[in-house]
Amino acid sequence: MSNLLEVNQVSKSFGNFKALNNASITVPKGSIFGLLGPNGAGKTTLIRIINQITMPDSGTVRLDGDLLNPAHIKDIGYLPEERGLYKTMKVGEQALYLAQLKGLTKAEAKERLAYWFERLEIGDWWNKKIQELSKGMAQKIQFVVTVLHQPKLLIFDEPFSGFDPINANLIKDEILRLRENGATVIFSTHRMESVEELCDDIALIHKSNKILDGKLVDIKRQYKINTFEVGIKTFDNEALQRELSQKFEVSVANFKTLEDELKLNIKLSNGSKPNDLLSFLTTKGEVSHFVELIPSVNDIFIETVKNN
């Protein structure tokens, strides 16, 4: 099995509202999978179906080849976007309770909690009540509880919200480490820069339909516009721009550099190679900047959602 999770043609309606319409996604084993979409697109519904909180009206979900069943609860760790803890319960007690609900024995849970609490340097919180902790501190506990039972599939919904940059980085490193240790991660967020940084695969859900999915690099390749950002120092800017315009599609670019130079976006016509452009440019002046414009996830997100 190369796919850990296969969601096949899943639909779900709430009354007259169709929250998911024949959505299918496949999450490769060991990947970090970005589940994207505007607010209210149906992401949370899909995540809840995977967690067996909501039952789909039609369609199937397979985890590691088997149809989803109650035994899978211990294979999934879920950090919901709307999350909290019992305010009046002590940290340690609460973590033990939640771990036991995921099928760990008390002794196992204690041992692993000790490890994680030490790892995240929160050992002395054990006897504190949640209401005494800050939001970021409570989030750390929630993260630990989510991963404690060593699930095959981790689902994080906006995992970094509420964290300062230092702790966000800490959690990001932990997620990467969990992946290295064999876990598969589904990652739902509106922060495109973290998608860019972490995700191998993405799926985009919009208005209850999946409208895009695949490997991030493939999608980027698909969306690339063959345009290069060029900075060049030359004696006659206008002449060069005129000359380029005859061969390529040219527009003025806007990027920051240390030099004062001519800045252009140049789109290659079909058939021509980047090298052709570069060698032409080197004859005209000193090239200080030459970068292919790769569409960001942000751009792809906005463009795809607008076009649908």
């Binding site: 909180i53 879920y78 919901p80 709307e82 999350r83 909290g84 803890l85 019992y86 939640l98």
Partner: peptide
């Protein structure tokens, strides 16, 4: 109501 307002409910019912 407490479970709802403290938002722990979704964590719990992903387990039970």
């Amino acid at each position: 109501i407490e479970e709802k307002t403290s938002r722990i409910i979704e964590v719990i019912i992903s387990s039970v």
